Amino acid sequence: MGLHDWPGRELSDEELDVAYNVRRKAGEELFGELMVRYRADSDKAVEGLPGSPGILYDEPSGERLDVWGTGDDGPRPVLVFVHGGYWKALSRADSAFMARMLHEQGVATVVPDYTLAPAATLEEIVRQVRASVAWIWRHGREHGLDPNRIVVAGSSAGGHLTGMTMVDGWQGEFGLPVDVVKAAMPFSGLFDLRPLTRVYVNEWLGLDVARAAALSPALVAGARRCPAVIAVAENDGSGFARQSRLFHERWGGELLVVPGRDHFDVVLDLGDPDSSVSRKLLGLVHSV
């Protein structure tokens, strides 16, 4: 796929804005309710849960992560969950709603913060998320985590950041094995960022087409393919649906279209062990 052949190129700027403005699609009332639920469900999930919150994982940025759901049964496989918010909103405190479900299934959860745009460039945000994976590889055992069973998931912008941990070419910089990420499950992710150079999101990203391409998992994937479930909501924004199909075509794995869900509530199903997304995630974790 060349620079003149990317998803949405044939759309007008106004049509692209509609395709990627999922907050407007949801409406302010529903969006606000769901953001409150992210925090409330996360607070409930981690209440009384064993773990180590607030660990500094990256000295240069000062960013921290929370470890939840460790056990007495030895180092546990770990889900790293990367929050969304179009790279400029939300935090680890809003993003642990799956921690209790996973703990009860023998899986630990790590939720990292990253410096939000525009205070950090997208290149720096990607570096920080990769540094959180490197921290688990080096220090996970001290906190009940198995560095040989790391699975990464994330929603929306977090889906993009998940993709940037799946691809080849960055692991050597951190002294990591190329297969440090054993499996992944991006939700409603962004995998070719070039369309975003033409929409409102670029007000805080400041990307040109070349930088957007270099930060696009669909374009820089490399040869290796870890197992993946690429999830998207049935009622997602059309841009996100198209991006998920594109990444599935390029990466492989499984494309999971979740019926009856939209961009913001699909990931909340991870709190329910019987939901389709939880079953798929647990299948990935227990396969590594």
Rank of each mutant, 00 (worst) to 15 (best):
L3H: 12
E10S: 05
D13N: 03
E14F: 00
V18F: 05
A19Q: 00
K25W: 03
E29T: 10
E33M: 09
V36P: 02
Y38L: 05
A40T: 12
S42M: 02
E47N: 05
G51R: 02
S52D: 09
P53S: 01
L56T: 13
G62M: 00
L65H: 09
V67F: 09
G69W: 07
G71A: 13
G74M: 10
P77Q: 10
P77E: 09
V78I: 06
F81R: 11
H83T: 01
G85P: 07
W87P: 00
S95W: 08
A96P: 12
M98P: 03
A99Q: 04
H103W: 09
G106L: 12
V110H: 12
P112E: 06
T121P: 02
L122H: 05
I125A: 11
I125V: 15
V126M: 04
A131H: 02
S132D: 14
W137C: 03
R138G: 08
G140Y: 13
V151L: 15
V151K: 13
G154H: 08
G159H: 13
G159M: 07
T162R: 06
T162E: 05
Q171I: 10
G172C: 09
D179I: 13
S188Q: 13
S188G: 15
V199Y: 03
Y200K: 12
N202L: 08
L215F: 07
A221E: 04
A223E: 11
R224L: 10
P227I: 15
A228D: 01
V229I: 09
A233N: 13
A233H: 14
E234C: 04
S238N: 04
Q243W: 06
R245V: 12
H248D: 00
E249W: 05
W251F: 10
G252I: 11
G253A: 13
V258W: 05
G260K: 10
R261I: 11
D262M: 15
D262Y: 15
D265C: 01
D265S: 03
G271D: 08
V277Q: 08
K280E: 15
L284N: 05
L284W: 04
S287K: 13
V288K: 15
